[in-house]
Design a protein around this nucleic acid. Sequence first.
DNA 1: TAACTATATGAATACCTGTTCATATATACA
DNA 2: TGTATATATGAACAGGTATTCATATAGTTA
Lengths: 97, 97
Amino acid sequence: MKFIDEDKIIDISELFKIFGDSTRVKIINTLIDNELCVCEIANNIGVSQSAVSHQLRILKSAKLVKYKKRGNCIYYSLADEHVEKIFKLGCEHINEL
Amino acid sequence: MKFIDEDKIIDISELFKIFGDSTRVKIINTLIDNELCVCEIANNIGVSQSAVSHQLRILKSAKLVKYKKRGNCIYYSLADEHVEKIFKLGCEHINEL
DNA sequence: TAACTATATGAATACCTGTTCATATATACA
DNA sequence: TGTATATATGAACAGGTATTCATATAGTTA
């Protein structure tokens, strides 16, 4: 083993697994530099409210997004710059293929 | 949509999906700075030859690994520095959680 | 309080994916 | 040529996962 312990391998693959779904990537993409509520996200990406909510739960539990309540709505945003970094590196790779 | 077109979202999620499996991450991890044949990979990571071969096919078709024949064996290595970059960024994220 | 809106959630379903097992292929070597 | 070794591959199976639908929850406003 070179860079990481065996037991971290699982964590790393779990992290990437979360980026490995188009609905979640759409959510991350629309949240870059934005703070949006659930129905705005759903409208932006053209996915049902329920599906977005299910995926937000996954993103939340992986600490990839954070949220705050304001009025009647819950506003989501990216948790930290790491998320954006990983996402953008993926974009770069795709663009260079 | 902010950074990428709708149609690239699929490609990006497909890319991350490949990093989202522990066997493939183990393969990538053991190939960092190494060129190894299939059975060496299988031995290193403790996975059957068949399973490794199946996963190498996926990594190959995504152009994440390259290979060359030498003697009786086929030696695999990482395709380019992008693969290592993405992998290491994932490691960083995990280590900082 | 009643009605409305935003969000979350559980169950069911359909689809996808990784492993195993058996076997094919192909190369090296005696 | 025959045997051994390395790798690939197809089918079958099991487990996982994303969506939908129905509904619950909770906050807001009339």
